[in-house]
Amino acid sequence: MNLKFWGVRGGIPTPGPQTVKFGGNTSCLELEFRETQRRIIIDAGSGIRQLGNRLMQNKTDKNCISADLFLTHTHLDHILGLPFFAPIYLPDTDLRIYGPVTCEEEPLEFVIGAQLSYRYFPVRQAELAANIEYLNLQEGHFDLGDGIKLVTKYLNHPLLCLGYRFEYRGKSICTAYDTEPFYNVFSTDTNDPSYDEAMAKEGELAAQIENSRIEDFIRDANILIYDAQYLQDEYETGRAGWGHASIEYAIETARRSQAETLILFHHDPMRTDSEIDELSDRFCQPKHTADTQVLFAREGMVIDI
C-alpha cells in the first residue's frame, strides 16, 4: 500500500511563502491498495481538493472513482475541502463517508451537509451527483473487505474524534489526531472550595487508564500519524484542553508503544518551514528517538508500506 499526505496542517489552510516546503493544506491522507484498487481517504481537509483533481485526471470512461472516506471528526478543518472534491460531482462516483456521530446524535449526513447549503456554498447537498453513503462509526473492529481490517478508538478532543488503525497483510497504519493526553480535569487542590477527594482520585485514575487504552490502540504500529501541534512548553501555557498534543508527548508515546515510524502531524498554523526544519534537527535524530523513526509530515510525501 501507498500512503500519501495531501494535507498536514491543523486549524486552517495556511498558504504562503513560509509553508511551501511542509505545506499549508489541512488534513487529508490517501491510502491506496495497489492490488485491490481500493482507496481509503482519511479526512476531507483542504488537501482533498488536489487529491480529487488527481483522481479526475486519471479517470477514464471505463473506471469510475470509488473511495472510502473516513472522517476523524467534523471540525471544520477536517471537512472544509469536501465541496471542492471534484469527484462528488460525477454521477458514477461511489463514495462512502464514515465518521463519528456527535453527542446530539444528529446523523453524519446532516453534520457534513450543513456546509453544503446555499448560505455557505452555491451547491446543495441534494444536488451532488455522486452516489454518497454516510455511515456513522463508533469504537469497534470492522472488516472492510479485501483483507483490510479497521480498528477505531475515541481520542481526547473537544468533540468526539476517532483514531483509525488500518491493518493489511500484517502491516498497520494508525492515526491519532486530533488528540491530547487525557488528564485529570478535576481539582486536586485541597484548598479549592469545590475539592472532592473521591473525584480527584478517580479523575487521576481515569486519565491513566484512558492514556494506556490509547497506547494499546497504537501499539506496534508500522506507521503512526500522531497529533503534534505544539511544543510542550506551548501546550503548558494555556493550550491544555484544546485537544492537541505536543511533539515531545507524541515521541514519548510512540516510543512507549513501540511504533516503528512516527509521523508528526497537524502542524500549528503558525509554524513556518524553517521552524519545522529546526524542530526536525532537534527531535528527529536517532539519538533521541531510539528504535522509532520520527519525521514531520510534509505535503506530497509518499510512503510505501
Binding site: H157, P158, L159
Partner: peptide, 10 residues
C-alpha cells in the same frame, strides 16, 4: 467522573 474524563468537558 470517569465518563467526563473520557467524553471530555465540551
Amino acid at each position: 467522573t470517569r465518563a467526563i474524563i473520557m467524553l471530555g468537558l465540551n
